[in-house]
Amino acid sequence: MLIIKYYLILKLLLYPFLIFGVQEEAKIKKDLRSLLSELRCMVCQNQSLLDSDSDLANDMKKIIYEKLKEGKSKTEVKDFLVSRYGEFILFKPLFNKTNLLLWLGPILSFLIIGFVGFKKTRIKIKK
């Protein structure tokens, strides 16, 4: 009876730590899933790591999981893989100087088309 009592007290004391561990693992799994969907399988290339079942993709999944478990952030893991496989591994290109036009292209074209359209409409109205 006494053993059961001590066991229950111990469990109660450890409860916050147990919960923390479960929450931590759930966060890692969530980060892992979101990272895998953002990364390209370098063998299949049209599939994400999440969808791919290739050998290389499975090895990468293991390494990504371990890095997240070590406490590395999603950005740190992405940076590691970009440094090894290049930016092509990312489905979404990085927002940097090289990709600036790629990111701002749609907004710029929308503004230019809008401006030209606006000008033409004004000319027509004046006529």
């Binding site: 370098m42 063998v43 050998d55 290389l56 090895d59 990468m60 390494i63 090894r84 496989y85």
Partner: peptide
């Protein structure tokens, strides 16, 4: 054997 160093080198196959 597990291809870990290979990923560190950016190997495809």
């Amino acid at each position: 054997p597990e291809g870990r160093a290979a990923i560190n080198l950016g190997l495809y196959g």
